[in-house]
């Protein structure tokens, strides 16, 4: 058993080399498909991350407190809000806190705020909710307090964003499914050609008395090895491209949508796993399917 495995692997490499024209054709068609899939995958994963981060950022309601509210009034308000369903955390943000946060956001330009004589920012209460759906009821409850000046939350914005990302995800899924189908057809046709070119070989094997699995074995291992080679090249290429992408525009993306791109390492690991699995199974499956017609007894 082990012996025949080694036999198959050895034969696969020998045959791939001797049929290098056809092997190259198969490798290229699998490679092309994986590359396109990889690009779509990069888009889809980043859109996902972006929408997750946006949702996290905005799963809170901020209520601003009128100047001159007493600590007792504020405490009462906080207690009431804490009891509301769906509220996970309530924190008080004093005027000084608000200024510190703003300074941090402004980064290097933060010193500009030092020149303000009086702190113009209002104190506020941050209410974190477990889901944005609960935000409206919390907001209206908070609005009833005398001391509350204004209520701010981002349900509509987030809803819109979610809709857009959702649409993008579905579009990408459809494109991906379409691509997989197309590439499976292309790849299995290429493999069919390689098998057809060797149909004599299969006939001969049958006359010598090889059973079907003995004949399939080397072809299947060949398919897997071809898939492996293609996925290795594809992983390398896509990861280099992605690394370059993150290096050149990653910061700009962050500045615009305040969401980082997925890390290169995460992308590399996952894409490699997907590529290897997909490449090998298409290679093996393609060989078996296209041999079927020659192995009917």
């Amino acid at each position: 058993m082990i012996g025949s495995l080694f036999y198959n692997i050895k034969q696969a490499f020998v045959q791939i080399f001797r049929n290098r024209g056809m092997s190259a054709a198969s490798i290229f068609s699998i490679l092309a498909m994986l590359l396109i899939l990889g690009l779509v995958f990069i888009i889809i994963v980043n859109v996902n991350l972006f929408s997750e981060i946006v949702k996290q950022d905005y799963d809170q309601v901020e209520v601003f407190i009128k100047d001159g509210a007493t600590q007792a009034e504020i405490d009462e308000c906080i207690e009431t809000l804490k009891a509301k369903p769906g509220v996970t955390n309530v924190t008080f943000r004093s005027q000084e806190d608000a200024l510190a946060i703003m300074k941090e956001r402004w980064g290097e330009s933060g010193y500009l705020l030092d020149s303000l004589g009086e702190n113009p920012l209002p104190a506020s209460i941050m209410i974190e909710v477990d889901s944005l759906d609960n935000a409206s009821s919390v907001a209206s409850a908070a609005g009833k307090f005398e001391i509350i000046e204004d209520v701010q939350y981002y349900k509509e914005t987030v809803d819109k964003l979610t809709k857009i990302t959702h649409f993008l995800q579905i579009a990408c899924m459809i494109i991906m499914a379409f691509l997989v189908v197309v590439s499976v057809v292309v790849v299995s046709n290429t493999i069919k050609l390689t098998v057809m070119a060797r149909s004599d070989e299969i006939h001969i094997m049958r006359y010598v008395g090889a059973n079907n699995w003995f004949i399939r074995g080397p072809f299947m291992v060949e398919g897997i090895v071809i898939g492996l080679i293609a996925s290795a090249i594809a992983s390398g290429a896509i990861c280099l491209i992605y690394k370059k992408l993150v290096e050149t525009i990653g910061d700009q993306v962050f500045a615009i949508v305040s969401s980082p791109l997925i890390s290169v390492q995460y992308m590399t690991v996952n894409l490699t796993i997907i590529f290897v699995a997909l490449g090998c199974s298409i290679g093996a499956w393609g060989s078996i399917v296209s041999m079927r017609k020659y192995l009917k007894a």
Binding site: R206, Y207, V208, G209, A210, N211, N212, F214, A297
Partner: peptide
């Protein structure tokens, strides 16, 4: 049976 054909063919040189 189809499964036996390979075995049988081994008894015959062609």
């Amino acid at each position: 049976s189809n499964r036996m054909v390979p075995k049988y063919r081994r008894k015959i040189g062609t």
